[in-house]
Design a binder for these strands. Sequence first.
DNA 1: AATTTCATGTAACCAGTTACATGATTCA
DNA 2: TGAATCATGTAACTGGTTACATGAAATT
Lengths: 187, 187
Amino acid sequence: MKRPLTNLELALLGLIHQKPVSGYDLCKVFETTPMGFYSSSPGSIYPALKRLEKEGLLLGKVERAGSMRPRRIFELTSIGLQMLKEWASAPVTRDDLVWNKECVLLRFAFMGSLVNRDCVCRFLKQIATETDALLTELRAHHRTMQEDEKSGSVLPTGRLALGYGIESFRSLARWARQTLKELNTSR
Amino acid sequence: MKRPLTNLELALLGLIHQKPVSGYDLCKVFETTPMGFYSSSPGSIYPALKRLEKEGLLLGKVERAGSMRPRRIFELTSIGLQMLKEWASAPVTRDDLVWNKECVLLRFAFMGSLVNRDCVCRFLKQIATETDALLTELRAHHRTMQEDEKSGSVLPTGRLALGYGIESFRSLARWARQTLKELNTSR
DNA sequence: AATTTCATGTAACCAGTTACATGATTCA
DNA sequence: TGAATCATGTAACTGGTTACATGAAATT
């Protein structure tokens, strides 16, 4: 009955897997890199680390134990690594794209050191096909909105906003296919 | 010290402004239209309506009072309308784009019936310029990631994911400029 | 008669936000 | 000496999620 991990927790596991670090270091990453787009501050990071440690996915080792300013360096446990790998290699579903698109990209960002090249390519293909399906849905909605417009007294900003939604998914599919090509040619 | 409204609350105000509706109707909108990308279910909608009513932004009128199945139709109060208009005409900031991009698009979706054409155009221009600034930041980060790659033992999926972030903001800026052009030619 | 839809809500839970607290260390 | 940085955390609040509860009306 594994509790599902939050995006923040997965981001922390991913970062710690790249290199064991302290809570403070993790705060810095969110403050100073584009990872910050996933938000987060000490008030969420430290409790998340505590949860992950309690569940045995992380292990915090005290460094500079004697000194007056100790710090805890977190490492993945084997269970933590396993969870990360499972997460990274799960298929991309429509729901992922609709409700948790940023999580999909987070997964991709950490895949490089978690799974093999084939798995990364499969992931990108799944993004492309699922996004195509979504686009069909969205375009249908866009058409019905256009038809309901007849008497255009106000600006159709609602439909135009949907237009952005469509553009944004098109750009995701394009990116996935482009990246896939790059990975194949650099093999 | 006006409490800031949540995205859901603003979405509800926007929908109710278009047409007075019941809580049930609002649930249906989220279930059946692309508005559902903003999530939400009865468990959040009804409490949100209650909050908004308590604060005087909404007024719920009981319809079919005598019958066995009454329902409450919500309307905006004048304060509610004023708040919506203020929200819609606020400038677009960098932070909006970073932390609350979906809210920016939500605002745009409702602008048509809240502010005049000039205000809509200004809004789109602001999106374009703020996005350009963000892109500069992101590209700088992308370059430093490329330089740190030298020894390419694993796939650089982290940098590639940032590549998507960049593409996605590029597509936002493109959409804003394209839409602006459309609005100007259809004047 | 049974199922689905209409219609409204409540309650427990959970995680993120903000703000605060503490104290050592380094730097100006 | 005073400010910024290192380093770790706690506590209150808040709003969304899930699941549940209720019952009338319409549909099959």
